[in-house]
């Protein structure tokens, strides 16, 4: 049976998952340099071992209220089509396996998140995971 491995994280009251194959690493939040005139959801750029990469604030991207930075806040560095960027999340929860069968297409009215960013909704036990479509996070509109 086909299954997916996901890195899950929390953002506000929701829980999200991204394909583990896209995740390059997970880091604590370093100093972020704001970039003027960049799209609003780009929080800025960071120094990742000598490379400058952009960081996206998912809460801004999804129009959610932004939580304060805490000890648990992290940046998940992902790679999409050879481009590397970070997504800032409130906390990384776990890595889990999910049967492809338990993934459903995104509901028409998604949970407060623009449906173009959603690949589907996964169920594991009682929990609902929103699976992110990373390709759309940077760029798009």
């Amino acid at each position: 049976m086909a299954e997916e491995q996901l890195v899950t994280f929390s953002l506000g009251s929701e829980e999200f998952g991204v394909d583990i194959m896209r995740v390059q690493e997970i880091i604590r939040i370093p100093p972020i340099t704001r970039v003027p005139n960049a799209p609003v959801y780009v929080e800025g750029v960071i120094n990742l071992r000598g490379n400058v990469i952009p960081v996206v604030s998912l809460s801004t991207r999804f129009g959610m209220t932004r939580a304060e930075e805490t000890e648990l806040s992290r940046i998940i560095v992902v790679q999409v089509q050879a481009k590397v960027f970070g997504i800032r999340v409130d906390a990384v929860t776990e890595v889990l396996h999910l049967d492809s069968d338990s993934i459903e297409p995104p509901p028409p009215i998604a949970v407060g998140v623009d449906s173009q960013f959603i690949r589907g909704v996964g169920k594991t036990g009682e929990r609902l995971l929103i699976l992110l479509e990373l390709d759309q996070i940077m760029g798009g509109d």
């Binding site: 340099t33 005139n37 960049a38 120094n47 400058v52 481009k83």
Partner: peptide, 22 residues
């Protein structure tokens, strides 16, 4: 600044200073 941010007005690129900040 990478492909995502390469056409911003007034910004030519980035650099990393001695303290590691961009």
């Amino acid at each position: 600044l990478g492909d995502f941010l390469n056409n911003l007005p007034g910004i030519a690129g980035a650099t990393i200073l001695g303290d590691g900040k961009v």
